[in-house]
Design a protein around this nucleic acid. Structure first.
Lengths: 260, 260
DNA sequence: TCCAGGAGCTGGTCTGACAAGTAACCCAGT
DNA sequence: ACTGGGTTACTTGTCAGACCAGCTCCTGGA
């Protein structure tokens, strides 16, 4: 152990690449608030002069910052360079999405994840929601009712809005992002497996009733009911795509009626 | 509403930048498995010929992919170009870290997230674990006991191993990764706020008892007890860093004793 | 007063070039 | 036969200069 430490030499030099130092400098300026969202970076040619590097190096640094969602190029424009963006979860979105693709997640794992997250989000909302949040959720539920039988896309959009309102009521960006990414990937994955349902009206009506249950549980501050409604809703939605073994993996989350 | 749909024209042209198309092509090749981790991309000059663009364009595309953690440049090297990397949580880490720096994510939100995930993972493990998984978890608990009073690092490593064993017992990579990333970021964030504890022996002994409770709940297939042990453990670990308002945000997850 | 058109800047891309670094090969010496 | 060193061919990192197309702004004419 001790000999290990004594023998571990540190690398002699770090071949720091020039564009990385530029990235670090601009990133620090943004993270420390010296560059605020909406501000404009100098033009590439000016940055080239300030950093004393070639334009290609400046551009590589800008591409990295753009990939991290911190700035956005705005086309040719004499009024300044790239714009500093306000915080967005987009890079988190992309990282999670590519993770899901690379891990070759299957539908049961995704649904299990969503049952965990959405169930607890609903339960938390039932306990922590404000009156304003509840009003928003109710409004989205009404919009969902109005969207009944107006086609798949309209109803799906209202569905998303409803869940977004619930997420907003507990204001935890991590839970929200995980929720939305998982939802997006789940839909993409399940749409590959089956065409649209043959009885959309009946299906939508049932979906609406489930969402109504979730709303009522949140309104009445009943976390257990909210949890169950959210999980049952998810299980029902994807049950048809799973075989018996896969369902067994999810059933603990459904069965856990009065206990968990 | 209907007029909205009719009036929504689609963008006439996408000013797609050349390097973005290159990013998409290489990204798709990786995501679909046509390029597997460890493989090497062609050299920049060869890519330049294949895509029929200039080298600067190829390089900008490579920088974006590198920023996303999908490839890694390997210096000047006649044996090939950039290396395709296996999935890593580094980009997730970076995204979360910058969220914290931009004050979009605070410690209560992180702990809340972990209480949701880890609690349900423990509960699921209590229901779905196999006997082999349980044996591994028990082994890790024993290792944790052996690491008592062997210093902060040794105990922390044993702690991580224990939780990894629980994660492995339900084999949902999405839950596992979210768990580990959140743990890493939480530790980084809380270490900034306070020095090491003054009574490490007592603290470690208490931590060990909590983990023992979790193990026993999983062994006895008591999901509610496992859930509570996991959540209480987290709440206790970070309670000291939170003010009263922040604690109120987490208390629903702790209070939910016999119900949720 | 108002609008059309040019000037000047910008980003996006290409070409060509050079230094520095590494992997592989060959060859001499032991 | 095996080790060691040097050479070579290729790579990346970076720079300089150039061109084009698009956006702003300002000016000059109607």
């Amino acid at each position: 152990m001790a000999s290990d430490q004594e023998l571990s030499f540190t690398p002699v030099a770090k071949p720091a690449r020039a564009y990385e130092m530029i990235v670090d400098q601009i990133e620090n300026a943004i993270l420390t608030g010296k560059l605020t969202p909406g501000a404009r970076l100098p033009s590439e040619r000016e940055l080239m002069a300030q950093f004393a590097v070639g334009r290609a190096t400046v551009r590589e640094a800008l591409r990295v910052l753009e990939a991290r969602g911190m700035i956005r190029g705005r086309g040719p424009n004499p009024s300044g360079g790239a714009e500093v963006l306000p915080f967005s979860t987009e890079s988190l979105h992309k990282a999670l999405t590519s993770m899901i693709a690379l891990e070759q997640l299957d539908l049961p794992a995704l649904v299990q994840f969503r049952m965990v997250i959405e169930g607890n989000v609903a339960a938390l909302s039932a306990q922590l929601r404000s009156e304003e949040s509840l009003a928003t959720i109710e409004a989205k539920l009404t919009a969902m009712h109005d969207a009944l039988n107006r086609g798949y896309d309209a109803f799906a959009a209202a569905d998303v809005d409803f869940h977004k309102a619930i997420n907003a009521s507990i204001s935890n960006p991590l839970l929200t992002v995980c929720n939305e990414v998982a939802r997006g990937v789940t839909i993409k994955l399940s749409e590959l497996r089956s065409a649209r349902r043959t009885d959309p009206e009946q299906f939508q009506a049932h979906q609406y009733r489930r969402h109504q249950q979730m709303y009522e549980a949140i309104r009445d501050r009943k976390p257990v009911a909210a949890l169950r409604a959210a999980r049952d809703h998810l299980y029902e939605s994807f049950e048809e795509f799973l075989d018996e073994e896969q369902r067994a993996q999810l059933r603990p989350l459904v069965q856990a009626t009065g206990e968990i």
